[in-house]
Nucleic acid binder design. Structure first.
Length: 254
DNA sequence: ATGGCTTTATGCTAAAGA
């Protein structure tokens, strides 16, 4: 079973990229972030063999799950704040795997309520992940975390010092997911530096590989045992009018 | 370098992204 994540920075603008990528990679599940609009082209994905569910809003945020198999939607809002109406969360059961798609808030600037929102969102996610660890054996929480877990996940740690993606409180909350028993799939077998999932549009960042790794798969122990590989597909970043993020692909046994 | 690009929006400048 192959499951991928991809922050597309507007599904409308990236539709052809996504369709071509699916045709090439034939993943079972693709979880998208940053749809950036109310409209989602479900019919177009249906035509190429993918069912879909989505949570969208005008202009910002938005998440979707595409799947070749039946999707059992469990929840489309992260519990814990009734006033939070941002489209950043989808929880589904697909082929026996609990798949949670997240677009975690960016949080900058850090002296604003945006960072407060990020931290409270991360605490709410902790509670949700804790519940799932008790209820299910095969769980993955994946998507755009907007967290650089360690300095080695960043080309220039100095430049990111003080950013909402690296602040000690952010990293502490991210680590707390590990204490619940979740593992960063990418780092199970890969300890190389300079492995990134995002490059800024400016200053030729991609060509110089000045990137950061912020798109992650966190896996429950059962899924770590089932994991065959977790790789970043950097190729789409080199296309015309690319997203600033690239897909990460998880392959599970059977 | 203060975002130097990119996207969306009852749009033509502002806000957000990371």
């Amino acid at each position: 079973m192959k499951i991928a994540i991809w922050n597309v920075n507007s599904i409308k603008t990236r539709l052809e990229h996504v369709k071509n990528w699916l045709a090439t990679h034939q993943v079972d599940v693709l979880m998208l972030q940053e749809l950036k609009g109310e409209v989602f082209p479900s019919e177009i994905f249906q035509e190429i063999g993918y069912k879909s569910v989505y949570a969208a809003q005008k202009a910002y945020n938005g998440v979707a799950i595409l799947s070749k198999h039946d999707i059992d939607l469990r929840c489309d809002k992260l519990p814990g704040d009734d006033g939070d109406d941002q489209a950043r969360f989808l929880d589904c059961m697909i082929g026996g795997v609990r798949c949670v798609n997240i677009y975690l808030p960016n949080g900058n600037p850090v002296d604003s309520d945006k960072y407060t929102y990020k931290l409270s969102w991360m605490r709410r996610l902790y509670d949700y992940m804790k519940e799932l660890r008790g209820a299910e054996s095969d769980v993955l929480i994946a998507g755009d975390y907007n967290v650089i877990p360690e300095d080695r996940d960043c080309h220039d740690p100095k430049a990111w010092e003080g950013d909402a993606a690296t602040l000690p409180q952010t990293r502490a909350l991210y680590r707390s997911y590990g204490f619940l028993g979740y593992t960063d799939a990418f780092r199970v077998n890969n300890h190389a530096d300079a492995q990134y999932s995002f490059w800024d549009y400016q200053r030729g960042a991609y060509q110089k590989n000045h990137g950061i790794r912020i798109d992650h798969f966190l896996l429950s122990p059962n899924l770590v045992d089932r994991m065959e590989s977790c790789v970043i597909d950097t190729a789409p970043r080199g296309l015309e009018k690319p997203s600033d993020h690239v897909p990460v692909i998880l392959t599970l046994e059977s």
